[in-house]
Simulated scan of single mutants.
Amino acid sequence: MSQGERTQLAERIAGEIAYSERSGETIRKWRTDFEVTQTELADRLDVSPSVVSDYESGRRDNPGIAVVRRTVEALLDIDEARGGRHIRQHARVISAGYDRDSVLDLREFSAAVPIERYFDAIDATELAAGTQETVVGHTVIDSIAAIRRLSSEEFYRLYGQSSNRALVFTNVSRGESPLVAMRVVNPTPNAVVLHGIEGEDVWEHAVDLARVDGFALSTTTIDLSAVLDAGDDQF
């Protein structure tokens, strides 16, 4: 990640905390998103864990800009020391112009990957075969947040520019909304993955729609972090 990308991400996180009516809750959101414990953050800030807890719970007044800046830099430093996985994911989404509450990851693979191999990497069960054999990346989408937060232009740009990719939808109950969306977006992706549900729970018309539109359809219940990491080492 370049210094400019890190600075852009830091400014985005700091701005969200500073403008939040519940800054402590926003700090907690980013800390947990980066998988950092209160103790780890406190050690980096050279304060006691109770201080971090007090800020996050609202027992202390809203942190000033200096505290926010140190907190953001601490989160980024910790992630960089671990290899920078979360920083890279955020940077990819931000550089594409999306909000990571809606788009959790947007990754390009180093080469075209057989769909079967991608499904194996995320422990997915194929429900319908597609007409294409490979994907060159994946886009992981929170289906509910996308509906609530993306404009119609962003929605169609996100879906419509993913023809040779795998679209992974999380936060789904039956997959009805993503599958209906595929009917109105052209071209369709090469593969669609419904995350967090078993095949038996998928909307009864999903497989038929996938076959009509020619994309591979699968489900996976693997931990979301494993889906987000797919491609770091495998492809």
Rank of each mutant, 00 (worst) to 15 (best):
F155L: 12
H205Q: 13
M182F: 01
I122P: 00
P49M: 07
V192N: 02
A145H: 05
G199H: 02
S151E: 07
E176K: 02
I65M: 10
A10V: 06
L228I: 12
F155E: 08
S48M: 08
A124H: 12
E80G: 06
D229A: 15
N186V: 01
E204A: 10
D79W: 12
R85Y: 11
H86Y: 05
G231R: 07
T131I: 04
I122Q: 04
P114K: 14
R31T: 09
A206K: 06
L228W: 14
P187G: 07
G24F: 07
L224N: 08
D232T: 15
D120W: 06
R82I: 14
A81W: 02
T131D: 15
V52G: 11
I115D: 02
D208E: 13
D123S: 02
I17C: 08
S225G: 04
S110K: 12
S2I: 03
E16M: 10
D123M: 07
V185G: 01
L224C: 10
E108F: 05
H205N: 11
Y98C: 00
D101G: 11
Q38W: 01
P189I: 03
E73N: 15
D79V: 10
S102W: 07
R69C: 08
R117T: 10
S50W: 07
H138Q: 13
R22Q: 12
I94R: 12
G137N: 04
F169C: 02
T220N: 01
A121Y: 03
R149H: 01
G83Y: 12
E40D: 13
T32Y: 08
N62S: 13
E153L: 05
S152E: 09
P49H: 01
N62M: 04
S163E: 13
R28M: 13
G130E: 06
S143E: 09
S50V: 07
Y55I: 15
V72S: 13
T139R: 09
F215V: 06
E153D: 10
D99L: 09
R100T: 03
N164Y: 08
R149L: 09
S95V: 00
R107C: 04
T71A: 15
S163N: 06
A124W: 13
L179Q: 03
R107T: 08
V72R: 05
I27A: 07
L106M: 09
D201R: 07
A181P: 00
R92K: 09
E154H: 05
D201M: 01
T32D: 14
I222V: 15
A129G: 10
I197Y: 06
V36W: 06
N190S: 15
L167P: 00
E16N: 14
R6C: 04
V36Q: 07
